[in-house]
Amino acid sequence: MKQTLYLVRHGRTIANTHQLVQDGTDPLSEIGKAQTKLIGKRFQTIELDVIISSPFVRAYETAKAIHRVTGAPLETNELFVEQRYASHQVGKSINDPVIAEERALMHGKRGDPHWHLADEENVHDLRDRAREALAFINTRTESNLAIVSHGMFIKMLVGVMWSHDITAEEFWRFRVIFESSNTGLTLCVRDTENHIHPDWRILTWNDHVHLADPCV
């Protein structure tokens, strides 16, 4: 069975622009809405069997734009939400000195799977969820799936495709070295009958050619 997976990061939000810690309620900004129209247009020539979206507003609004163009059935799934940040940090700037210090502390403790500052998902929790998400994807029989999700989560999903046992250090490299654009498109392909490579492969990371639109 051959499958193509289109991982789409949501359009820009005001919080993205101002580098604020987000929860699930932040809506798309005006630019974000324009970006979703552009990613929708990309999907005009792409056959899709299903769209699975994180239920967070910014992802769902992006997914709806793709659904409007393709007519593919749209589902939501909590597995694809963004890495959950400590609730007391939500709405604050990542450059706020207290938040910056907490983030530095969390980064220093990244090797410890059991350490948490508060109620956030640490890197190990995120990896466990990404593995669960990959197992869920592997139960789907549609040939062409779009998943609308978030920057950090998409990186971890690609990370577990790269190595099931990806470490906190390795994920940190992914985070910093691989850039992710709003509505960037990451294509993954799989051929379960290919005995040499039956697993997911990354065909494209972060294609965002649709953003080179002079109107945005």
Binding site: R173, E179, S181
Partner: peptide
């Protein structure tokens, strides 16, 4: 790939896209 002299984490290079082949469609 972008090399930014102000980006001093790891090797200094970043990967913005991999295997963009939109022109083939």
């Amino acid at each position: 790939c972008i090399l930014d002299s102000e980006h001093t984490i790891h090797t200094g290079w970043q990967i913005i896209t991999w295997n963009d082949h939109a022109h083939l469609a």
